[in-house]
């Protein structure tokens, strides 16, 4: 969106048939993703439970939702061949490590320019924040809010959220565990959407190459930003929300 408006200022862009078809395709895929029930698919592939799940503690496969007795931990899932775990392995360590890396990259991602528009030989580097400010300056404040939220606020929410989870588990805090669970779900769901900026940027850099007239070049900030998005996704994926509930059980 931001990219589109920025290009509009230097060139006229018309969406052709292929573009419309692609948009339709993406939208349909999104719909399918939304309406499909994975359990139905997996149940069609094989039985949803291992023998011996009737008695005692059970665990489930993280990939296909197969139910197995806790003794099967470490073995491979008979249905999807993923390793079965009681909890995600080294969840806290991995989340902490990836989160810390993301935190570090968050700094240059916001301080360094993410792209540079070379217009008529005039260099115009832009950081995320300067982009937001520019949008505000030309009165596109709804867009400014979107960019500000998606590129600055959400990564920050993800990082602070994960930190909160880790600290809470470490200290054995059980209060507001419901709120934390909801936040985790939100983080998991929104995670990949932050990367849309990176994808747009890559398209922009490839498309806007009008020689000396206008050129868009990616800057180191973009790499850092992509790193932040990918690392926070991996961190939230490595995190096991059930650990928070384990503390509740411990307390009980």
């Amino acid at each position: 969106m931001v990219a589109y408006t920025r290009i509009q200022s230097v060139a006229v862009i018309e969406v052709a048939t292929g573009g419309l078809a692609f948009a339709g395709f993406v939208f349909t895929v999104l719909l399918i993703d939304r309406v499909i029930d994975r359990h139905v698919v997996w149940d069609a592939i094989g039985p949803g439970a291992m023998p011996g799940v009737e008695a005692g503690e059970i665990i489930d496969c993280l990939e296909c939702g197969l139910i197995a007795p806790v003794s099967a931990a470490g073995a491979l899932c008979p249905r999807c061949a993923a390793t079965l775990h009681r909890r995600k392995p080294d969840s806290l360590q991995r989340t902490a490590a990836l989160g810390a890396a993301a935190f570090l990259l968050y700094i240059p991602a916001n301080l360094l320019p993410i792209l540079r528009i070379v217009r008529f030989g005039r260099d115009d580097p832009a950081t995320i924040f300067s982009g937001v400010r520019e949008l505000l300056a030309i009165g596109l404040w709804p867009l400014a809010v979107i960019v500000f939220t998606a590129s600055i606020v959400i990564p920050l929410i993800k990082l602070t959220g994960l930190t909160w989870f880790l600290v809470a588990i470490r200290l054995g805090v059980t209060r507001r565990v419901m709120a934390r669970t909801r936040l985790y779900r939100f983080i998991e769901g929104i995670g990949r959407w932050s990367n849309i900026d990176v994808f747009m940027l890559s398209i922009l850099v490839a498309l806007v190459q009008f020689g000396s007239l206008t050129r868009v070049e990616a800057e180191p900030g973009a790499v850092a930003f992509a790193g932040v998005v990918v690392l926070t996704m991996l961190a939230s994926r490595a995190f096991d929300a059930r650990l928070m509930w384990d503390r509740v059980e411990d307390r009980a």
Binding site: A97, A101, A102, L104
Partner: peptide
């Protein structure tokens, strides 16, 4: 896994 933040730190 902890090499990742170390690498990130070095890069930053």
């Amino acid at each position: 896994v902890w090499l990742v933040p170390v690498a990130a730190f070095l890069a930053v």
